[in-house]
Simulated scan of single mutants.
Amino acid sequence: MCDESMEEFSGATGTGASATFPMDVSALRVKGFVMLKGRPCEITEMNKSASGKHGNAKVTIVGEDIFTGQRHEDVVPAEENLDVPNVVRTEYSLCDITSDGGVSLMDDKGDTRDDLKLPEGKLGEEIKVKFEGDGPDLMVMVAKAVGEEAILSYKISKE
Rank of each mutant, 00 (worst) to 15 (best):
L36R: 09
G55M: 09
Q70W: 12
I43G: 01
R29K: 14
A19S: 13
S10Y: 15
A19E: 10
E80Q: 12
G55R: 09
V76W: 05
I43V: 12
G121L: 04
P85H: 06
R89M: 12
S5L: 15
S5H: 15
V76M: 05
E45L: 13
G14H: 05
E45A: 10
S93T: 11
I66T: 08
L94Y: 04
N86F: 06
A57Q: 00
V30I: 13
L118R: 09
T60V: 13
K48C: 06
A50D: 08
I66G: 07
E73F: 09
K31Q: 12
G11T: 04
D111G: 07
I43P: 00
E42N: 03
G38P: 01
E126G: 02
S10H: 11
R71I: 15
D96P: 09
R71K: 15
R113V: 10
L28Q: 04
L28A: 12
T90N: 07
D3E: 14
H72W: 15
P85I: 07
L105Y: 01
E8V: 02
L36Q: 04
M106L: 05
L123V: 12
E73Q: 15
L82D: 00
P119T: 05
D111Y: 03
I66K: 06
T44E: 02
G11S: 05
K109V: 06
G121W: 02
T44M: 14
V103S: 02
D100Y: 11
K31E: 14
Q70T: 15
V129D: 12
L36M: 12
F33S: 09
S93M: 10
M106H: 06
V75F: 07
S26N: 01
R113I: 04
V76K: 01
V62I: 15
G16N: 14
V84N: 03
D83K: 01
I97V: 10
G38S: 05
R89E: 13
S26V: 10
F9A: 11
M46F: 07
G14K: 09
D24Q: 08
V25C: 04
M23I: 00
C95H: 07
E132Q: 13
G135I: 05
D96H: 14
G38Y: 11
H54R: 12
G55A: 04
G32C: 01
T90R: 06
G32M: 01
L118A: 06
G52M: 06
K130D: 08
G102E: 02
M23Q: 13
G110H: 02
M106R: 14
D3Q: 15
K117M: 11
M106V: 03
P119F: 04
I127N: 03
K128Q: 11
A57H: 08
E80H: 08
C95K: 11
D100I: 10
F9E: 14
I97D: 08
M106C: 13
D24K: 05
I61S: 01
V103H: 03
M23S: 05
K130T: 06
N81R: 14
G69C: 00
F9N: 12
K31M: 08
N81H: 11
A57K: 09
P77E: 09
E79R: 14
E64T: 13
V34Y: 01
V75G: 01
T15P: 07
K53C: 10
K109A: 10
V103D: 07
T20A: 03
Y92N: 08
V25G: 00
L94S: 07
T60W: 01
G121C: 08
R71S: 09
A19M: 10
S104W: 05
G135V: 00
S51N: 02
E42P: 02
D134W: 03
H72I: 13
P40M: 00
T60M: 10
G110T: 00
